[in-house]
Design a protein around this nucleic acid. Structure first.
Length: 564
RNA sequence: UGGGCCGUCGACUAAUGGUAGGUCAAGUGCCUUUGGAGCACUUUGUCUAGGUUCGAAUCCUAGCGGCCCAGCCA
């Protein structure tokens, strides 16, 4: 096509903002908000919303508020608001205003009184059960409540007494008076306020009536003069109601725009289900590195840049789709590859003795810290007669296309020497427990002066110098692409992967890692990207595998396995 | 079944009546002191049927398929 750089990535929400800017609809203002309910930890799906809300405002010199949608005191806690703030910051965004829907409870109450006076709202004495029966079904219209036509004065009196705490939970509600026959169920006189005698994390015992989402959300947007209220697709049916309240009240007309929420293969993004995993102890907490929460992903070693790049690449639309997990993994690898130092670590050690290497000799070999970053420099790695290599890097009987060490075969020890396997030592059950080799002194550093080639380079660690570590290897938390796909009578926990966590205890690391600090990220050469876990202590290091390197041999092996 | 929304390579997403393109995945080759990274190339797509038009992924009609809604949750 043309040689110009690819056009700025756009999407339909951005296009709407662009149009509004062009027509000067809001005097050039762009005001968004990110409105989480503090009833759980944020997950990668929220990251998409955050990038949109903050990203679009940033792009057009607008503003974004962080607003906690705290209208349900029974589920909300300050622990969650703190974690949410930390996660937003970690992702790299800064809010302009920090608000709570509960900041607006007084205003919301006054507006409710106005709607009552205008004959647009009424107190209903029906029980929850009766209200449901009166609501009708998808195909049949609802029936009016017998209390629907109470006089405004009576409604006012009752509503004030609801607030005053005269009535029991669930005994009455305030409802908007719209249309019980609407084909949109949300318009069949939705509940605006319910009675809940519960301590609220911010307002304490001040209120015993709490506004419902539909009444609180749009009004909060309006109070903050939000121009573009971006939310997910399931709220599409609520938009007429969102607009109805704003219209009746005659307040600032915020506009709701809906996009598709993120779905990922092998992943559950439902706060309710994630809570269940935590409560049932299926994972070690909200920040378990297997969790799709931002705190879990962070602990796993993902970077905010990787997540932002991922979100930017998946786009925004209204089609309900599922992103392949491989897409996310690609963006972590891409980011970590550029920034993270290389290091040698052996997860499952196999002892190698180099018979012709001097008994007590130790050499300091030069190793490149990051071939992608010349500025990262080099380090010294000790080499000696007894080493550990990866068990996977030796086969007594090599399968076809296997290039690593096997009897009679010569390979390169990275930054070390060429070695050739001579003999093996087996234990009583016939397993190879030790491999003997000879080395070629002329190949120091890994180059053969005679120009001969080897088909493989493997990593190693000097046995006498190695430090021990625990390494936690993670696989997908679920075995099915769609964890919700279950047999009758089962729930999603039936799809939990029993092998999602493997703890490797005897790993051997090169000595430079002794000073690795919590959060530090590394590439263990040929294995993957790893980071130092929160549980790590000096002398008792613990690493998480963030993501494995792409493994061409694994693919070959799999193909061979499939054939046989 | 009433209403709302949505159908473009295996996945995600562009093309806004005018050359169906990008990313991921998959495959092939090159290169390589990481079977990593990188580079090059390749395969596969407009849900169906009609219509409007010089020209349709785009507009119209009808089908088909998917998602969401009957909380005093958000």
């Amino acid at each position: 096509m043309d040689a110009s750089p690819s056009p700025a990535p756009s999407n339909f929400v951005r296009d709407i903002i662009l149009d509004d800017l062009k027509s000067n609809k809001y005097e050039g203002r762009v005001q968004t908000r990110f409105p989480p309910e503090p009833n759980g930890y944020l997950h990668i799906g929220h990251a998409k919303a955050i990038c949109l809300d903050f990203g679009l405002a940033d792009e057009f010199g607008g503003h974004t508020n962080l607003r906690f949608d705290d209208t349900n005191p029974e589920k909300e806690e300050t622990e969650y608001v703190e974690s949410i703030k930390a996660d937003v910051k970690w992702l790299g965004f800064h809010w302009d205003g920090l608000f709570y829907a509960s900041d607006y409870f007084d205003q919301l109450y006054e507006w409710a009184m106005k709607l009552i006076k205008d004959g647009k709202a009424y107190v209903d004495d029906l029980s929850a059960e009766e209200i449901r029966k009166h609501r009708g079904t998808l195909t049949e219209p609802g029936k009016d409540s017998p209390y629907r036509n109470r006089a405004a004065a009576e409604n006012l009196n009752l509503f004030e007494r609801m607030r005053a705490g005269e009535f029991a939970d669930g005994s009455r509600v305030l409802r908007a008076k719209i249309d019980m026959a609407s084909p949109n169920l949300n318009m069949r006189d939705p509940v605006m306020y319910r009675i809940v005698h519960a301590e609220h994390h911010r307002t304490g015992a001040k209120w015993c009536i709490y506004p419902m989402y539909d009444y609180a959300h749009g009004e909060s947007d309006s109070i903050e003069r939000v121009t573009h209220s971006i939310c997910t697709l399931e709220f599409e049916d609520h938009r007429p109601l969102y607009n109805w309240f704003i219209q009746q009240l005659g307040i600032f007309p915020s506009r709701q725009i809906e996009f598709d929420r993120l779905n990922l293969t092998y992943t559950l993004l439902s706060k309710r289900k994630l809570l269940q995993l935590v409560q049932e102890g299926r994972v070690r907490g909200w920040d378990d590195p297997r969790m799709p929460t931002l705190s879990g992903i962070r602990r796993r070693g993902y970077t905010p840049e990787a997540i932002r790049n991922f979100v930017a690449s998946i786009g925004v639309s209204k089609t309900t789709g599922v992103i392949e997990l491989a897409m996310l993994e690609h963006f972590v690898r891409e980011d970590l590859n550029k920034r993270v130092p290389r290091v040698m670590a052996v997860l499952r050690p196999l002892k190698v003795v180099i018979d012709n290497y001097p008994e007590n000799q130790v050499e300091e070999m030069d190793a490149v810290n990051n071939p992608e970053d010349a500025g990262a420099g080099t380090r010294k790695v000790p080499f000696s007669r007894v080493l550990y290599i990866e068990q996977d890097d030796f086969r007594e009987v090599p399968p076809p296309k296997y290039f690593r060490l096997s009897p009679g075969r010569e390979v390169r020890l990275r930054y070390g020497y060429f070695i050739t396997c001579t003999t093996v030592v087996k234990n009583a059950s016939g397993e190879v427990v030790e491999v003997h080799c000879t080395y070629d002194p002329a190949t120091r550093g890994g180059n053969a002066p005679d120009g001969r080639k080897v088909k493989s380079t493997i990593h190693w660690v000097s046995a006498a110098h190695a430090i021990d570590a625990e390494v936690r290897i993670y696989e997908n938390l679920f075995t099915k692409e769609d964890p919700n796909q279950v047999e009758d009578g089962q729930d999603f926990t039936a799809n939990l992967n029993p092998n999602s966590l493997e703890i490797v205890t005897g790993a051997k690391l090169e000595p430079s890692l002794a000073s690795a600090a919590v959060g530090g990220r590394y590439q263990f050469e040929r294995l993957g990207y790893f980071c130092v876990d929160l549980d790590s202590k000096p002398g008792a290091l613990v690493f998480n595998r963030t993501v494995a390197l792409k493994d061409a041999w694994a693919r070959v092996e799999k193909k061979q396995g499939a054939k046989s």
